[in-house]
Design a protein around this nucleic acid. Structure first.
Lengths: 135, 135
DNA sequence: AAAATAGTCTATCGTCTTGGTAGGCTATTT
DNA sequence: AAATAGCCTACCAAGACGATAGACTATTTT
């Protein structure tokens, strides 16, 4: 399951995507329009900024805005950043890989199955972007 | 990510699948062979029994055993029982559905995308069984 | 320069989940 | 009756999750 934080992140990003190239948007505006707790949203946006997905401007007329066009931000990137691994097991994760203890990956049915699930999922989230969030 | 509990469950079930129709297997045997904390495994097996996946026998010569043949136990069933929802969002879950607050499912890009992910995943885990865990 | 604006940073907090343990109880066999 | 082996209830520590507080810094306006 995606955490609430991830859902908030996607709502905020979708909102910013609709405002792309229209200047900075206030955290408070996003929080109000998307009904996200303000201070919680602050943390999320900051994290997205540190990952170079967003940029910000301080002072009057400031706010947050997308650092690149919506179709350049992959869903997979955001999920990994805010939610963590996409795979169902560490031993089949690309970005959060960990070897299985007491289990030979070459002869593990669970491993093989979860690898399939991972690929099926990646096939979607690696090929969708923030642009697809705007309906 | 699958919880450690789920991974233990699958290891235990895979072991019991290899012993299908060979009489009861001691919890302690499974725990030892699969390196699972004994008391924790007790809980897991009991849960699987209550869900009619396993059955047990008390007293000498007792133990746990599969209640039906390995190919009749779907991966999806076990995941839902031990791990919870398969979908990434409550609003696209079949068995744990919850309506989205402040979000119209008919016009939500995230919803549509997560529906795709869910279907891709279900397509695998609904069509694989414990039999596929044995290599 | 001062005041206002708006993001940044650090810390904290209550609650729930996760992983695991303990110990007694009950049913079945020998 | 004694031994075996699963059943049940309770508990606990650590960490994750969702959220909040408050002080700090950078930028703009007056």
């Amino acid at each position: 399951m995606l955490s609430k934080k991830s859902q908030y992140a996607f709502k905020a990003l979708a909102y910013l995507a609709t405002k792309y190239n229209q200047g900075p948007v206030l955290i408070s505006e996003i929080a109000k329009k998307k009904k996200i707790p303000l201070k919680f949203l602050e943390n999320i946006l900051l994290e997205l900024k540190k990952a170079d997905i967003l940029d910000s401007k301080k002072g009057k007329g400031g706010g947050y805005f997308l650092n690149k066009s919506p179709e350049k931000v992959k869903m997979a990137t955001v999920i990994r950043l805010i939610n963590g691994p996409i795979a169902m097991l560490p031993c089949v994760s690309l970005y959060f890989y960990e070897r299985c203890k007491n289990c030979d990956e070459k002869h593990c049915g669970l491993h093989d199955m979860m690898l399939e699930v991972r690929d099926a999922t990646l096939n979607i989230v690696e090929n969708r972007t923030l642009k697809d969030l705007i309906v």
